[in-house]
Design a protein around this nucleic acid. Structure first.
Length: 275
DNA sequence: CATGACACCTGCTCGC
DNA sequence: TGCGAGCAGGTGTCAT
């Protein structure tokens, strides 16, 4: 589910509700979300800690604690986060995998229907290692077309798979990859080392544009995604190709085609506009 | 090192 | 109506 724009939206919504407050009564309802730490240990490491910052890196939600340790949350396909003020209802607890009290009146809820989401706990050194294996942030001001070319250019992997590889580039998932490649007029199956300088430049521009537009629309809700305030996003109304196989291409009216040939993920494209 | 298969999970939709 | 197959926004591991 959540790609960069969705995670960014959640983080922006939740940061003011979390930063500066203390964590109490952490509860792990589904211990299988934990990676590399036991339930007992996680609870003892975070209970009583104050949250100094909430931020995003790739699709990871990073909770920086005042002792410089971090809790890393990945929502994967169906995870969602919310702050609930006041009493919890039955419905709040549907699919809940983790909860904690934040400050005096709020509860932090991590819900996940499929339970593919994860929680990790990292000391500063481990975070540095982990972070080093993630590719550059495409929305960073310093990220240029040449950086995209050096991130994915030296590989024979299909360009769509390459831009979705979090070690090469941070934050792009299946929906925004489809959209960016459509706007750039690039066939998703092209080996990334066959792209020209002009194509890297176009793709750099369209990746940044679709991600920024996704953030402006507060994300894409196809099923489970909700913002940090529990609302649906709007970007599903602005999708041009993702999920639109069989419909006419918005540029040339040729029928859009959906395949599963790249890494088993759905790819929708216009064979005429994307070459 | 690159690649593909598979695992992790549940729910929804579609075809019979 | 019921049932099984296939598919879904993601990512880590393992064999080749």
């Amino acid at each position: 589910m959540p790609e960069l724009p969705e995670v960014e939206t959640i983080v922006r919504d939740l940061a003011p509700e979390l930063e500066g407050f203390r964590i109490r009564n952490a509860r792990v309802i589904r211990p299988n979300v934990l990676r590399g730490i036991t339930k007992r240990k996680l609870v003892s490491r975070i209970d009583g800690s104050r949250i100094s910052k909430l931020y995003r890196r790739a699709k990871n939600i990073v909770v920086l604690l005042d002792d410089d340790n971090r809790v890393i949350i990945q929502l994967r396909m169906t995870g969602s986060l919310r702050i609930k003020k006041g009493r919890l209802t039955e419905a709040d607890l549907d699919y809940v995998v983790f909860t904690a009290e934040i400050g005096r009146h709020s509860t932090f809820l991590f819900r996940d229907v499929r339970r593919l989401g994860t929680i990790q706990f990292m000391a500063p050194e481990r975070w540095v290692e982990y972070e080093a294996r993630i590719g550059p942030e495409p929305l960073a001001g310093s990220f240029r077309a040449a950086d995209l070319a050096s991130a994915i250019g030296g590989s024979t992997v299909a360009v769509k798979k390459a831009i979705m590889d979090q070690r090469k580039l941070a934050g792009v998932g299946n929906i925004y990859a489809n959209e960016a490649l459509f706007f750039a007029g690039i066939d998703p199956s092209r080996p990334s080392d066959t792209l020209s300088e002009a194509e890297f430049s176009a793709l750099h521009r369209t990746i940044r544009r679709v991600l920024n537009n996704g953030i402006r629309s507060r994300g894409t809700t196809l099923r489970d995604y909700r913002t940090g305030t529990g609302q649906v996003g709007d970007f599903q109304h602005r999708l041009k190709v993702y999920g639109k196989g069989g419909r006419p291409c918005p540029k040339c009216r040729t029928e859009l085609v959906t395949t599963h040939e790249i890494d088993g993920r759905s790819t929708t494209m216009c064979w005429r506009c994307q070459t």
